[in-house]
């Protein structure tokens, strides 16, 4: 990293008050540069994280000042026995299972095709990426209308090809797949861009060389593209899993967790408990448990990346 640590001669030498050699007197400017970030970080990330942890041991209420009475591990014990907490965790996981594979595979296929085609890339980028940049509220308005029984475009489309349509958002069994379809449509563009960037890093000569050696398109994809994109795929998969675990918007906006709570995610459960039922302490405890889950997933990612780095 930085090796240029020569003090400019025009500047007066720093007072020799700090005799320790490893800190060559840049501590003060460094502190000044770090300060604005540090203040916000401590005030709005680290501070709340500690406060949230404390709160999770109390019966804090939204509508009462202070922390309320001490609950010990009561909130955690309750959460672990709370079927609604477990089902919200399962819904979140189910959503992740439904969305992650298609979001990776489709994004990969589309990016691969776009990369091979070469022409009209701006158009594909527009088509696949434009939804991603729109707010979830806009997505929700559009897709609620798409899924509307009788009037919606999806039912009309299925009817014209002679298929009948399930009650997309009304049936507890179909509500989550419906949200998954919407999410795939909405966020595929992000992975598409990541894969496209990854594809551009692959040297063209590899393809040319293999073509000269007589490799067909499928062989090129199998032998060059997929292995070369291994790291991108890991990255996409992990970002995807973490993003899916944090799902809130789609459920809140499209089904409000229903029907019959069949689509309530963990974050919505936090929201419901904390801000609808006023149980801030309990909500904080659920947040902490959820944090552990995210942390575990991140840890798995780190170990995979480390192994990949050793292999390459």
């Amino acid at each position: 990293m930085s090796t240029e640590t020569v003090t400019p001669p025009a500047r007066p030498a720093p007072p020799p008050s700090t005799p320790t050699p490893p800190a060559p007197g840049q501590g003060r400017p460094a502190a000044a540069f770090l300060l604005p970030f540090a203040i916000l970080y401590l005030a709005f990330i680290a501070g709340p994280a500690v406060y949230g942890l404390i709160m999770s041991f109390f019966d804090a209420s939204l509508v009462r000042p202070g922390l309320g009475s001490f609950a010990g591990f009561g909130n955690y014990a309750e959460a672990l026995q709370d079927p609604d907490f477990w089902s919200s965790l399962w819904h979140t996981l189910w959503f992740t299972i439904l969305t992650t594979p298609p979001l990776i595979v489709l994004a990969f296929v589309f990016a691969l095709l776009a990369d091979r085609v070469g022409r009209g890339r701006w158009f594909f980028r527009l088509a696949f990426f434009a939804p991603f940049i729109l707010p979830s509220a806009v997505i929700a308005l559009i897709w609620i209308f798409m899924y509307t029984p009788e009037l919606g475009l999806i039912e009309a489309g299925l009817n014209t090809v002679g298929l009948s349509s399930p009650a997309w958002l009304g049936d507890p069994a179909w509500a989550m797949p419906s949200l998954a379809i919407t999410t795939i449509w909405w966020t595929l563009g992000f992975n598409f861009i990541l894969y496209l960037a990854g594809l551009q890093e692959i040297p063209r000569e590899l393809y040319e060389a293999s073509a000269i050696d007589g490799a067909g398109p499928w062989q090129q994809i199998r032998r060059i593209t997929i292995p070369m994109l291994g790291r991108t795929t890991t990255l996409v998969a992990v970002l995807q899993v973490i993003a899916s675990l944090k799902v809130f918007d789609q459920m809140y906006l499209i089904t409000n967790g229903g029907p019959d709570f069949a689509t309530r995610s963990v974050l919505q459960y936090v929201y419901d408990q904390g801000f609808t039922n006023f149980r801030l302490g309990y909500a904080a405890a659920i947040s902490m448990l959820f944090f552990l889950v995210v942390l575990a997933v991140s840890a798995v990612w780190f170990s995979i990346v480390r192994r990949q780095e050793k292999e390459v």
Binding site: I45, A49, M55, K246, V270, A283, S287, V294
Partner: peptide
């Protein structure tokens, strides 16, 4: 994740 901090 910022979302786990909404309560505090």
């Amino acid at each position: 994740p910022g979302q786990v901090l909404i309560v505090p």
